[in-house]
Design a binder for these strands. Structure first.
Lengths: 198, 198
DNA sequence: GTCTATAAATAGATAGAC
DNA sequence: GTCTATCTATTTATAGAC
């Protein structure tokens, strides 16, 4: 049954996106996944051959989804600060993908296993689109070093803050860390950076 | 023998700081640590009772060392941008502590285990000292919301970039990601943020 | 304090019935 | 495709000799 197959496979993937993000690769067991997804233990290996292949599929899904979304967001006509806020919101809505990817980046061991050779050279998902948005908003192309500086500043703040919000700020009462506060922070940073480049 | 005891215990701690950072809590085994530290497997449980207690000791050591260092860096007389660059360098020199702490923050499971209740409310190590440095450099106390904005921007960039440098940029040849480039980025961001607050 | 040996639990993966 | 049962390996933790 093709329908049943898709259902089971999809349930395994979507459950794994959450569990790998929360407990890491080593901290998640196939039995965890199977129980949570309400599928049989053996079906995980049946569909994905191994735990490692499953993790690969999870990472690929998260990265591709994010790159597609950023591309969609950063179309001509979008103001840079609006686009960055949308990126931030996307990360909140897909926090598990962000966390899995970041845990992978931070793991020497697993990074070598899952991102061998030159595939590590890709930048942040949608980096090119954000660069184009900066150029459009400035009305000119800044020097390379200025453009890269702006990208580093903006991406690092959006990404880092999305992680902290997800892991630490959410559901607590720390001053100036509500999602509205953070969105205002991003907008202000965006304006300050653009002004410095102009 | 007290001397031997210290030696063994210290070797276990310093090896664990590296291994937990690289492979995570679940990914690191007591046997790994014992082999790498060249001590007997049983001595880890002898000195620390359990793997969890050892992890606690490792995290505490990393956080305390960092908070002490930032306090030492951000004394009156230090220019803010110099202090932030020193913080960045400290993170590079102690990348394992930064990675362990961040992995813990990103792990729902382990965070609940190791940071129960209100102990989660502490800010970044040395946050207060950096705030004081901003106020000194401005020559006035800005509005609370402006001060918190500046802190968020500066800490997120220094921290996030230290992680990325450690995990992705180091030993590769990506434009504008050398440690000198990053230090210039931090200085520029610092000037831009201070100018916006003035 | 340090070691070997081992207990007790749990992991990933697979064989084979249905 | 789905299930149970099981193999093999590895884990943390501890008991007991030295």
């Amino acid at each position: 049954m093709v329908e049943k197959e898709l259902e089971t496979k999809e349930r395994i993937i979507s459950t794994s996106r959450v569990l790998f993000a929360e407990k890491g690769f080593e901290g998640t067991t196939i039995r965890n996944i199977a129980t949570e997804a309400e599928v049989n233990v053996a079906s995980v290996n049946y569909y994905f051959s191994s735990k490692e292949k499953l993790f690969e599929a999870v990472l690929r899904a998260g990265f591709n989804d994010c790159a597609a979304e950023v591309t969609k967001i950063m179309i001509p006509g979008t103001r840079l600060e609006d686009g960055l806020v949308q990126m931030f919101r996307y990360h909140l809505d897909h926090r598990h993908d962000l966390l899995s990817m970041f845990k992978l980046l931070m793991s020497t061991q697993e990074k070598q296993r899952f991102m061998p050779d030159e595939s590590q050279d890709f930048g942040p998902p949608g980096g090119k689109c954000v660069a184009d948005a900066i150029i459009r908003e400035l009305g000119k192309r800044p020097r390379d070093q200025d453009l890269h500086w702006a990208l580093k500043i903006l991406f690092s703040h959006v990404t880092h803050t999305a992680i902290l919000y997800t892991c630490c700020f959410k559901d607590r009462h720390i001053p100036f860390t509500s999602d509205e506060d953070i969105e205002q922070s991003i907008r202000r940073l965006c304006r300050v950076v653009l002004a410095d480049l102009a």
